[in-house]
Nucleic acid binder design. Structure first.
Lengths: 250, 250
DNA sequence: TCCACATGGATTGTATACCAAATGGATTAG
DNA sequence: CTAATCCATTTGGTATACAATCCATGTGGA
């Protein structure tokens, strides 16, 4: 019925994975666009972990039939965003403590590789971008310390800085499979877990900023081994923080 | 019409990814079963790289309607087995040289981590299983050297030994995310590429067997760092072999 | 009071039919 | 030999129907 027209500006061959990035989707494939939008909503926390994905409701929201919605859900299941329970539907995966532990170990390895590669391939421009991201971090810290500004602002600022920092390193690593692999693992491990723990304590944030600086310095110095080690430590500490937060819930 | 009854021996909650392993599918979800079967056929080379997946034909083969087939294809696209060309259909992805290079770099890292973890966690039983796999390797080598037996037998034997060897290490690593991550990358990089190069030259095979032995010895000695290094070298060499084979085609 | 069991509503999973849009190749015109 | 046109095939999406399944709720009995 209410069917919005599809704009066909541009023919793209679309060789990459659908749900990979948060970027606004081009033309190809309603199901892909729905899948991408849903993953974005999961990552942003707009859709809470453990909640159900009702096909009819989603179809209504997007103004489509159930068919492309079901295809999208299949994609989400394949990428691990969602778990499929037979005859019950799709539920947004809430990782167990064990899965988080395992996941951060793998993520550390991959990001460590990215840092090592970045140490040999990074351009001066990318180094400068890393430094800019660090300044964003410090801005976020002072914003949180400041009693005036809301917590939400600080959260967004910090998240953005963090995303940028890691994405710059990833770009500098010049390995497309690595990009895909990290996108994959970000679907397994919900992104924002870290902030929940970090945002409480300014000392933790300062420590975190220092870790980022150490990574950048190693990359700038072209010391691949040091960059890798610094990155691995950084990611593993984040994982420990998240696990600590989980154990508090008992 | 011709609709086979579905056996419901066993209710499984099915929390894991659908196309993950090659194992025969349980109950849940026709689309999942189709996706799993198709990925298996791609991995085994039954479906050649670059060929098209025709919805109608597949639907006919499985005795279903197009609906679950389309959902399965969406899953395959999400896992990277297939590339989706708008209005043209799904084609089995044939990775470029660059993708293979990047992919093997990532795979080396992940398998290296697995080997390191295995060095600390492997049980004596698993060590024995690794040794058994090594004997399978040697059997395959002699079988290939022997002019009587067909090449296909040697190929299957070697592939099985290789799969077993790496799966045992993976099991010994005790990290479920790592299992999933390697399953993911196996969908990006078709599995059997290595054999095509390895099978030609018995010296290459012997060298390969030696690499496997070195890995096992490091694991047996509990030397994580050595196991990681040996595994990384092993995987990277396989990647170089595959790349050499590709360049020959020019 | 509490447990076992039937019942009904909601939702998924699959089939079927239909059609617009697009694509690549064949055919035809220049 | 090239360019425009036409056409068969295939996808992508809508709509609808319906069996199977599951869960919650309520009912009856010990």
């Amino acid at each position: 019925m209410a069917n919005r027209a599809v704009n066909n500006y541009d023919r793209s061959v679309k060789t990459t994975d659908p749900t990979q990035q948060q970027g606004a989707d081009p033309n190809a494939g309603l199901s892909d666009r729905i899948a991408a939008e849903l993953t974005k909503q999961v990552s942003s926390g707009e859709l809470p972990l453990g909640s159900w994905l009702r096909q009819s409701k989603i179809a209504e929201e997007f103004g489509t039939s159930r068919t492309p919605v079901r295809e999208a859900i299949q994609s989400l299941s394949a990428t691990g965003v969602v778990e499929l329970i037979p005859n019950r539907g799709a539920r947004i995966r809430v990782p167990s403590a064990g899965e988080i532990e395992d996941g951060y170990r793998v993520r550390a390895e991959l990001e460590g590789l990215a840092a090592e590669l970045a140490a040999t391939f990074a351009t001066q421009l990318q180094i400068d971008q890393l430094i800019a991201a660090e300044e964003l971090f410090e801005a976020a810290v002072t914003e949180v310390s400041d009693a005036d500004t809301s917590v939400e602002v600080g959260r967004q600022r910090w998240t953005q800085a963090n995303d940028e920092f890691h994405e710059i390193i990833l770009a500098a690593a010049r390995n497309q499979t690595l990009v895909s692999a990290l996108a994959w693992i970000h679907n397994q491990l919900p992104r924002n877990l870290t902030w929940n723990e970090l945002g409480r304590d300014v000392r933790l944030m300062r420590s975190n900023v220092a870790q980022h600086r150490a990574i950048r310095e190693a990359i700038e110095a072209g010391d691949g081994r040091a960059a890798r080690q610094a990155m691995i430590r950084h990611v593993l500490r984040s994982g420990e923080l998240v696990l600590l937060g989980l154990r508090e819930l008992d």
